[in-house]
Design a binder for these strands. Structure first.
Length: 597
RNA sequence: GGAGCGGUAGCUCAGCUGGUUAGAGUAUCGGCCUGUCACGCCGAGGGUCGCGGGUUCGAGUCCCGUCCGCUCCGCCA
């Protein structure tokens, strides 16, 4: 049907006849001559309709935006002074000899070159939105990344295996998406939160090296970087140590950046312990582009008269921490009030601050509502430890450690965004030495920080129960520019340790047998030591293309209420379908109660 | 479950302390135009002010509820 993509018709084609197909991007009708910018996935090409050819000129007058046409014509250089330097095809044009209108089109609901169209409109008409060059580029970039992954994994001896989408619900972890069984009334499949157990069983099955570009499903609330279905590069290996697995994945990561981004990442990537990440950055996924760091001052204020500081300083579960903002003294009171409200979201009950006007002047050089409460020694210690300089602003957090880390960790990110402090570079690192368990205060029970199949760093099952809070796991997370893009661990391959972990998580023998019996049996069937990882491809590609949301790199994403404005999913089904599935809905129809706009 | 911001023409938005006929840009439609490329010029049409209720002589504007979109907290092993 065509000889060239529009975007590929350049000077080399001058003098030849070409046939191109595409969409009418824009029509400029000068009465006596008509220009059409014809668009396909490779770019734009100017087509000229001349009144000398009366018949197709008349046809061209009836062309409208987004009509699908086919043009045959002679490529010729544009007249002197009419070249368009902004287009790769800008030195040439095609004089139309023949025109076929393959399809007319309604005027599009939005203009393709309008950068400010609302996302709900874009998603409702995603098939039009996808025509925009940015979306085309995002999806093709994604394709290139995945092609590189396939090539690398194959080179490294990995075998791509598909695992079930219909599987069973498991306790722990995210809320499951359920699929009712018709043949087993009252029973449900669950969509996999990840292929975790299957890939472990593939190791027991002797595959040795498995990978899959796997869709995962989690029925939790959405964020800019979270969709209910998302894609992971899922990997599992046998007989490799933690470091060996990390090396393989790190090399993939580095090569992706080299080959797709032309960016050199350091080798090896830096590694940081979870404890250090929380202490210095208030986060388990620190953004190392950000120069701000948290500095603990517990010891400096422990015997202070100032109870707001002294009390947490004496509590082992709390921390007292300073965030120094270089040149931050120019930040206004109202802006600081805004930051106070900001940290309140994370549970902080206040945000103390000191403006450092003159370090040499000691107490008199400091401007703050709290200096009067602090001793000269404490103030001097704080200035010294934070390396405060004239013109700096110090923010303080004093509370339970989880609150301080969350609040000041978030404030650190917000300040960097507001003051444009982040270095323009790529900062990848591993976060290692994670705690195995965390105590959930609300549910009053231990939960696995990574997942329950992660190998705890203990010598025996008995060691676990003694001091769960201080058991480390062999988990590792890959963090890029402050976003978790992957994580993995060495897995438990002994049945007794797996049982002990279940027991600690409050999963009794019977429940473990019912829900994980197949895993426990497999671990008794000659399970090799194994370890693996998953890379979140949507997030990684979002970062690589510089998008603000994962939705920009997914062809048909869902909105924050997990709906698809285009298909209307999720939708209702008729009563017969429900009956076949032995299901009755208790929901009151939204449509009956309210028609939304 | 919670917080914030938003919802007015196809799209992007303005609309003050409530007040006559709700505006702009763009898109669309018609006319003119032979070198434009966001073509230009002239003209026209286009509104359930998300939805429901309330206050008021009077509501796009105020109040309550609700739905939708986005960001975030919780949640996401």
């Amino acid at each position: 049907m065509r000889t060239h993509y529009c975007g590929q018709v350049t000077e080399t084609a001058v003098g030849t006849d070409v046939t191109v197909c595409g969409w009418v991007h824009r029509r400029r009708d000068h009465g006596g001559v008509i220009f059409v910018d014809l668009r396909d996935r490779e770019g734009l090409l100017q087509v000229v309709f001349d009144p000398d050819r009366a018949e197709i000129f008349a046809q061209a007058e009836r062309l409208r935006s987004e009509f699908v046409i086919q043009v045959t014509g002679r490529v010729r250089p544009r007249p002197e002074g009419t070249m368009n330097a902004n287009l790769p095809t800008g030195k040439v044009e095609v004089l139309a000899h023949a025109l076929v209108v393959h399809n007319r089109a309604e005027p599009p609901p939005f203009q393709l070159d309008d950068p400010d169209v609302g996302e709900d409109t874009r998603l409702k008409y995603r098939y039009i939105d996808l025509r925009r060059p940015q979306m085309q580029e995002n999806l093709r970039f994604r394709h290139r990344v995945i092609q590189h992954i396939h090539r690398y994994m194959d080179e490294q001896g990995f075998v791509e295996v598909e695992t079930p989408i219909l599987t069973r619900a498991t306790p722990e972890g995210a809320r499951d998406y359920l699929v009712p069984s018709r043949t087993q009334p009252g029973h449900f499949f669950a969509l996999p939160q990840s292929p975790q157990l299957f890939k472990q069983l593939l190791m027991v099955g002797g595959l040795d090296r498995y990978y899959q570009i796997a869709r995962c499903f989690r029925d939790e609330d959405l964020r800019a970087d979270r969709q209910p279905e998302f894609t992971q590069l899922d990997v599992e290996t046998s007989f490799l140590t933690q470091d060996e697995v990390m090396d393989i994945m790190e090399e993939l990561f580095r090569r992706l950046f080299q080959e797709v981004m032309h960016v050199e990442l350091p080798s090896p990537l830096p590694r940081m312990g979870y404890a250090e990440a929380m202490a210095r950055f208030g986060s388990d996924k620190p953004d190392l582009r950000n120069p701000l760091v948290l500095v603990d001052i517990k010891d400096l204020v422990a015997d202070s008269e100032f109870k707001v500081f002294a009390h947490p300083a004496q509590d082992p579960a709390s921390r007292v921490t300073v965030l120094r903002v270089p040149s931050g003294a120019t930040i206004s009171r109202s802006t600081i009030d805004g930051y106070t409200q900001f940290v309140a979201r994370y549970g902080a009950r206040g945000l103390a601050w000191i403006k450092v006007n003159d370090v040499a002047a000691g107490r008199d050089g400091l401007q703050s509502p709290i200096v009067k409460n602090l001793s000269d020694a404490a103030l001097a210690g704080i200035l010294e430890r934070t390396h405060a300089a004239n013109g700096d602003l110090l923010f303080f957090g004093a509370d339970r450690a989880t609150v301080v880390s969350a609040a000041l960790g978030a404030l650190r990110l917000k300040l960097a965004a507001d003051l444009d402090l982040n270095r323009k570079e790529w900062q990848a690192l591993w976060v290692v030495d994670w705690p195995m368990f965390e105590f959930d205060d609300k549910e009053k029970r231990w939960v696995a920080l990574h997942h329950p199949f992660t190998m705890p760093r203990v010598n025996s099952a008995d060691e676990l129960a003694g001091d769960p809070a201080n058991v480390l796991s062999s988990g590792y997370d890959l963090v890029l520019n402050g976003i978790e893009v992957g994580g993995g661990s060495v897995r438990i391959h002994h049945q007794d340790i797996q049982q002990a972990v279940f027991r600690l998580l409050g999963i009794g023998l019977e429940e473990a047998q019912e829900k994980f019996g197949f895993l426990l049996e497999a671990l008794r069937a000659g399970a090799p030591p194994h370890a693996g990882m998953a890379l979140g491809l949507d997030r990684l590609i979002m970062l690589m293309v510089g998008a603000e949301s994962i939705r920009e790199v997914i062809a048909f994403p869902k909105t924050q209420t997990a709906q698809d404005p285009m298909t209307g999913a999720p939708g209702t089904v008729d009563a017969r379908q429900l009956r076949e599935l032995s299901i009755r809905s208790t929901a009151v129809s939204k449509a009956a109660a309210n028609v939304s706009g």
